[in-house]
Design a protein around this nucleic acid. Structure first.
Lengths: 123, 123
DNA sequence: CAGTATCCTTTACGATACTG
DNA sequence: CAGTATCGTAAAGGATACTG
């Protein structure tokens, strides 16, 4: 059985779990990482894959993921410049853990929606 | 190999993955779910386990998790009233997927911090 | 193409006080 | 004990315009 000390009473900035998870649990982070699972992608390709993320937010998230060591950023001089992003080995490990979660989310969509409707109907 | 359609170009409210993940990727959701892994806990016990979450936010998160069907809320009349929370089978499944992520976060803490320091030192 | 720069809105969260 | 009610802050995200 898995025994995890969820959180200590220390400063949140020092709680390892929260500190690391914070950059994975954003609205877009996991989707961006997943999009790189098959192979490296350029900025515009990631944007197209996600669909409705803005340029500003995508840039922000990519920087954060690069900073934590999950992806690399490679510039091929242009013009036009070509910037491609790829998973590091740590990033690939993380994707290996995130993928089941995303898959689970897909599969559980119907059940969750049903639950919500029922909960909301009880006033 | 895992093939996942990360996101379609539909309305975000209709994207199954994002819709379900939204309530799991909060700052506290996963930690709350994890705290219930061993067994049911009362409100104050969850609060003590997490440490620095406020009552208001804990209540908010518990409602949201209950709404989506991950946990149940049981009231034993008092006084003092005793409210206990427990994982549903769906919640238990989710925890089974989240636990590796939390464990991974713990183990990767040092590597991530090292990466950040290095990234930040490059201006 | 891959970003920055602004500006604005929303949402999550924090602090504190109060209650059946 | 397990909340609710208020108020305030901060961070994430959205919209749009501009640039090397």
């Amino acid at each position: 059985m898995l025994k995890i000390t969820v959180v200590t009473s220390e400063d949140s900035g020092l709680c390892p779990v929260r500190n690391v998870l914070a950059n994975v649990t954003g609205k877009w982070s996991s989707l961006i990482l997943l999009s790189l699972e098959i192979g490296p992608l350029r900025f515009s390709e990631i944007k197209r894959t996600i669909g409705d993320i803005t340029q500003r937010v995508l840039t922000e998230n990519l920087r954060s993921l690069e900073r934590d060591g999950y992806i690399t950023r490679t510039v091929r001089p242009g013009p036009p410049v070509e910037v491609s992003y790829a998973l590091t080995s740590m990033g690939a490990n993380l994707v290996g853990i995130l993928a089941p979660l995303v898959l689970w989310a897909e599969q559980s969509f119907d059940a969750v929606m049903t639950q919500r409707k029922q909960f909301d109907s009880l006033k």
